[in-house]
Write a protein that binds this DNA or RNA. Structure first.
Lengths: 190, 190
DNA sequence: GCCGAAAGTGACACTTCTGTCACTTTCGAC
DNA sequence: GTCGAAAGTGACAGAAGTGTCACTTTCGGC
């Protein structure tokens, strides 16, 4: 090969995620990323043409990881177990939805960006298809209210991950509370 | 007085909101705002020192409007009516939470910015206090599950506004579905 | 040893945003 | 009518981000 790289793809993704959360899409710059990686700004151009390429590549990577975990939903036999597994997965990846929102705004600046965005779109569709089937199954088994539109149920579940956690409330208690609210709401049963 | 202004404060706020939603905090510039207002960029400097001042001023304005509506919660006698009123108010202001998230990142560049941020903080606290009392009352009247932490219930309700609406589902149906999920969850009662 | 490929660098030109300044325009008060 | 205050403008200089280029560094293969 050649000279050893001073930074790995994984490091790029890790800092990209951090910078996106801190500065947002418009505030993300090669200068900032280079600083975090401890290399010169131009070094990054050896591997990516522009920031859209970095960001979409990171997103594909993140999506792949989530999807790799997600397919284990089929290890669970019952609807209730699958539903619980899904909620845990989503609550664990509490940054995913923010990334999806950011991803929607990225313009197609290079063919690589376009390709990454298409892969993201495919992941998204497959995920949605699976989830839709889960909700459908829940309705058929009489576990989910049949009059709620699937899209709203799914969008609602995904949105729930954004509920912030506060000091004084443990992560476990937080996750349990969110799950209970999604499943049974905030009101008492009577 | 003097010469008539080419743009009103309200126009500034309206375009600021629009630009923030389109480009985010970091993508918001005086050049963009001036273009929308149909004036030169420097004209804006006559009224605001920098973009932080414009943005926080807009946020205070928006918050005042929401708060003015919010206090009508006391026009409703029962907990259930108040709760419903609150949900309607929040669902109607579906951009508020995004603005709050953006607001957290604004640095204190001038005294005016600092003052605006403090006013926002005060609104926020008063609002939280009121809402906390509502949840507390709901618990005492046996309407809200007592074991859910108030903070989580409130954060959850606020977060719900972000659930996107889709074509094919009417706004009314969307709002009704969200309300039902918050109150009673997605699962059937048994 | 030396050669080529890959990795990394600083310098440059370009663009965009920022904030200031001297200037002009417009209006009401007198 | 003219004067002053407020509103608006274009020109400028500085800061920050972008992308390119010629160059150097480092490694494995021969």
């Amino acid at each position: 090969m050649a000279r050893e790289r001073k930074f790995s793809l994984n490091e790029v993704f890790q800092h990209t995620k951090q910078l996106l959360l801190e500065h947002g899409y418009e505030g993300f710059t090669f200068g900032l990323l280079a600083e975090r990686l401890g290399v010169s700004r131009t070094a990054i151009y050896k591997h990516f043409e522009n920031k859209e390429e970095v960001i979409t590549a990171y997103m594909v990577d993140e999506m792949e990881q989530v999807f790799a975990k997600f397919v284990h939903i089929h290890d669970y036999p019952t609807f209730d177990e699958q539903f619980r597994f899904l909620l845990n997965l989503i609550l664990y990846h509490d940054d995913l939805h923010r990334m999806i929102a950011i991803g929607r705004r990225i313009p197609d600046t290079t063919p690589a960006v376009r390709a990454n965005k298409e892969r993201l779109e495919q992941f998204h569709e497959r995920m949605y298809e699976e989830l839709n089937q889960l909700v459908e199954r829940g309705k058929q088994e009489g576990r989910i209210k049949p009059h709620l539109p699937n899209r709203i149920v799914l969008a609602y579940i995904f949105q729930s991950v954004v509920v912030p956690h506060f000091p004084g409330i443990s992560l476990d208690q937080w996750a349990e509370s969110i799950k209970e609210i999604i499943m049974y709401g905030v009101m008492t049963g009577n």
